[in-house]
C-alpha cells in the first residue's frame, strides 16, 4: 500500500502553494511589477520626504517669482502666485495617492461583501442587488461621481465616498461571477457533507480564492480613482483650493496654457505616470497570481 514512492514533484514551479510561500519574492521578480515600482517608488519617496526637501512649502507664495519657467531652482517652474510647482505637485500626489488607495480599499471591501452574498445565496438577494448594480453601471463612472459629489458635497471624504460608490457595482459584479464559479466546486460539496456552516464556506473556501482577481481589479480602480479625482478637482467639485490636488493644479494652469505651459502639463505628466504604473502593477499582479498566464 505504501509502494507509491514519496517523491516531491519538483516540476511544477508555478503552482499556487509555491507562490504562497514565495509570493513577494516572485512579485518582485516580475518585469511589469519592477517597472511599476521603478516609476512609483521615486514619486512616493519624494512625496513622503517632501517636508525635508530644500524647496518652498506647497502653499508658500513668492510674488517676486511668479510664473517662472522650469529652472534649477524650480524644476517644474512656479505658478501665478509664485508657488513652487514641484512642491505643489508632490503635495498633490500625496492627496491623489491617498484618494486612489482609499477608493480601491473601500470599493474592494464593499464589493467583496455584497458580491459574495449575492453570488453565494442567489435568489431574491441576488436579483435585487443585480438590478441596483445594473442601474449604477448604466452611468459613466465620472458622471456618477459628479452626481454623488453634488449630493455629498466637496472635500476629501465626499470625493473618496463618491468615487468608491461609483466603483462598487463593478466589484460586486466581479466578485459575484467569481463566487458563482467557485460555488459548485467539489471542495465546497465536501465541506457541506460534514455540515459546515455557510459562514465557514464563505470565509474558508470562497473568499480566499477570489482575492487575487479582486486585487487586480483594485489596482486598476486605484488608477481610475486618481484620474477621476483629478477630473472632479479640475471641474471644481473635488478637493477645495488652495489645497494642491493634481486636478486643481491642472485647472490653475489651464488659463495660462499659452504663457506658462508647465503649470498644467507637468502635474498632468505625473498623473499619467502614476496611472500607467498602476496598470503595470495590476498586470503584474495578475501574472504573478495566475500560474496559467505565465507567458
Amino acid at each position: 500500500m505504501t509502494q507509491e514512492a514519496i517523491v516531491l514533484p519538483s516540476r511544477r514551479p508555478f503552482d499556487l502553494a509555491w507562490l504562497h510561500q514565495n509570493g513577494i519574492v516572485r512579485a518582485l521578480g516580475n518585469r511589469r511589477i519592477q517597472l511599476a515600482l521603478a516609476i512609483l517608488g521615486p514619486i512616493l519617496f519624494l512625496t513622503v520626504f517632501r517636508p525635508l526637501l530644500p524647496i518652498q512649502g506647497p502653499l508658500q507664495t513668492n510674488l517676486r517669482e511668479m510664473m517662472q519657467p522650469p529652472s534649477f531652482q524650480h524644476l517644474f517652474g512656479t505658478d501665478k502666485m509664485g508657488r513652487d510647482l514641484v512642491s505643489r505637485t508632490l503635495a498633490g500626489v500625496q492627496i491623489s495617492v491617498f484618494v486612489g488607495f482609499a477608493v480601491a480599499a473601500l470599493a474592494l471591501v464593499l464589493g467583496l461583501v455584497m458580491g459574495t452574498l449575492a453570488g453565494f445565496f442567489g435568489g431574491i438577494i441576488d436579483r435585487v442587488m443585480m438590478t441596483i448594480t445594473d442601474i449604477f453601471l448604466a452611468f459613466p463612472s465620472l458622471l456618477l461621481a459628479i452626481g454623488l459629489v453634488s449630493v455629498l458635497g466637496t472635500g476629501m471624504v465626499p470625493v473618496v465616498l463618491a468615487i468608491s460608490l461609483s466603483d462598487v457595482p463593478r466589484f460586486i459584479r466581479l466578485q459575484r461571477s467569481l463566487v458563482l464559479s467557485l460555488r459548485t466546486r467539489a471542495y465546497i460539496d465536501a465541506a457541506r457533507t460534514v455540515k459546515a456552516s455557510q459562514l465557514w464556506l464563505m470565509t474558508r473556501h470562497i473568499i480566499p480564492n477570489t482575492v487575487a482577481p479582486l486585487l487586480v481589479a483594485a489596482s486598476i480602480a486605484a488608477a481610475n480613482a486618481i484620474l477621476v479625482e483629478a477630473g472632479l478637482s479640475f471641474l471644481g467639485l473635488g478637493i477645495m483650493p488652495p489645497a494642491p490636488s493634481l486636478g486643481n493644479l491642472i485647472r490653475d494652469g489651464q488659463s495660462y496654457l499659452e504663457q506658462a505651459w508647465w503649470i498644467s502639463t507637468l502635474p498632468g505628466a505625473v498623473i499619467l505616470l502614476i496611472a500607467i504604473s498602476l496598470h503595470f502593477l495590476s498586470d503584474g499582479i495578475r501574472q504573478v497570481l495566475d500560474p496559467r498566464s505565465h507567458k
Binding site: H20, R185, Y187, D189, A190, T193, R204, P208
Partner: peptide, 15 residues
C-alpha cells in the same frame, strides 16, 4: 456518508 470526488483537481481548496 462521505464522498470521494471524481476530479482530483477541483476537489481541494488550492489555498
Amino acid at each position: 456518508a462521505q464522498m470521494v470526488f471524481q476530479d482530483p483537481a477541483s476537489s481541494f481548496n488550492p489555498k
